[in-house]
Computed example of a mutant assay.
Amino acid sequence: MKKIKKIEHSQEWHTQRSKGLGGSDAGAVCGMNKYKSPYALWCEKTGRVSCEIQDNERMRLGRDLEDYIAGRFTEVTGLKTKKTNYSYQSDKYPFMLANIDRWVTGAKDVNGNHKRIGLEIKTMSDFAAKNYGIEEGFIPDSYYAQCSHYMAVTEADGWYIAILVLGKYFDVFYIERDDDEIESLIDQERYFWAKVENDIQPPIDGSDSTKETLNIQYPTSVESSDIELLRSEEVEAYRDLCEKSKELETAKKEYENMFKSDMQDAEKAHCGCLQITWKTGKSNRFDQSRFKKEHPDMYKEYMKESETRTFRTKFLNQEENT
C-alpha cells in the first residue's frame, strides 16, 4: 500500500482521483449506484465529461459535521478515531485508490490482537436517506462496496460506517472483511479499468445517469445530418416495447377512470393498500400570448434564447421505408 499526501479539493487531488477508482466509484462500477451508471463513470474517467463537482453547502455541512459524527461514533462504540493526512494506493492494483475519513484506534479481536479498521462518515437529510433506500439497520449496497474497496486497498480487517440522518437518527454499522467478496470487487474494478485504459465503452443502460451523461456529451445536433444505425434487432425490440407501453398506459387510464367514476366529487378514497386523491387545484399562469401582443417591445427585451435537444422516434410504414 502506497501513501499519497492528501490535499483535499485541490487541483492535484482532483487530478489524482481521475487517474484511478476511489471508494465512491466502487458502487458505480458494480451497477449499484442509482445516481451514477457504469457508463457515466467511464465517461468521467476517460475525460469525456468533467468529474469535478462544484463545492456546495451540502458538501460543506458534511465536512463540518465530520468531527461531530466521529465523536458520536466514539460515544456509541467506545472506540477512538484519528484523521489521516494521506490517501492510499494499492501496490498490486495501482488504479485502486482510497481517500478515507478516519482510522479507528484501539480495536482488537477476541484474542486481544490489534485490528486495522477504518471509518466512513455519512451525513444526509431524511429526504436523501429515503432516496438512497437507507433505513435504520440497513445500508445500501453501494456503501458496502465502498467499504470493501477501502479494505482491498488498505488491507484492513473491517470497516465501520457512521450515518447521521439530520434530525432523525444516528446509526453505526460494521462490515467484517470478506476476502471472497473483495476479490470479486477487485475483478470487477480491474475489468472496468481495462475499458478506461483501452477506451472501450461499457454497455449502455436505461438509467437517468446515462441519459444525462449523453445529453452533456452531445448537447447540440449537426443540422441536416442523417446516419444509418446498424441495430435492426434493437429497433424491433424497441417497437415491441413502444406498443406494450401504449397498451399498458391505456389499461392504466381505464382503471383510473373507473376510480374517478366511483369517487364522483369525493376528494379522497381508499381500497386495501391503495390511497387515492382527486383534488381541485388552482394555479396562476402567465398569459404569454397576450403579453406578446400588448407589449411586443418588452416581450423581445426579456426573451432569453436557450437550446435543448429533443429526442423523438417514429416508425415508418413499409412504403415510407422503401
Rank of each mutant, 00 (worst) to 15 (best):
residue 56 N to T: 11
residue 246 K to F: 00
residue 48 R to V: 04
residue 179 D to C: 12
residue 227 I to Y: 06
residue 239 R to T: 00
residue 35 Y to Q: 05
residue 136 E to Y: 03
residue 111 N to R: 11
residue 88 Y to M: 01
residue 168 K to Y: 06
residue 29 V to E: 08
residue 126 D to C: 05
residue 3 K to N: 08
residue 248 L to H: 02
residue 295 H to R: 11
residue 317 N to C: 08
residue 41 L to M: 08
residue 62 G to L: 03
residue 98 A to T: 03
residue 105 T to W: 07
residue 96 M to I: 09
residue 77 T to H: 11
residue 18 S to A: 15
residue 14 H to F: 15
residue 54 Q to M: 13
residue 3 K to W: 02
residue 153 V to T: 03
residue 130 K to P: 01
residue 286 F to Q: 06
residue 71 G to K: 06
residue 243 E to M: 09
residue 237 A to V: 04
residue 214 L to C: 12
residue 71 G to H: 07
residue 87 S to R: 12
residue 154 T to V: 00
residue 93 Y to K: 01
residue 42 W to H: 13
residue 74 T to Y: 06
residue 47 G to K: 10
residue 38 P to Q: 05
residue 280 T to H: 14
residue 144 Y to K: 14
residue 61 L to Q: 13
residue 50 S to Q: 07
residue 241 L to G: 01
residue 43 C to L: 14
residue 39 Y to R: 06
residue 4 I to M: 06
residue 238 Y to K: 09
residue 99 N to T: 08
residue 274 L to W: 11
residue 81 T to Y: 05
residue 245 S to E: 12
residue 102 R to T: 03
residue 185 L to V: 04
residue 141 D to V: 09
residue 200 I to G: 07
residue 143 Y to Q: 09
residue 166 L to F: 01
residue 243 E to Y: 12
residue 174 Y to I: 06
residue 69 I to M: 12
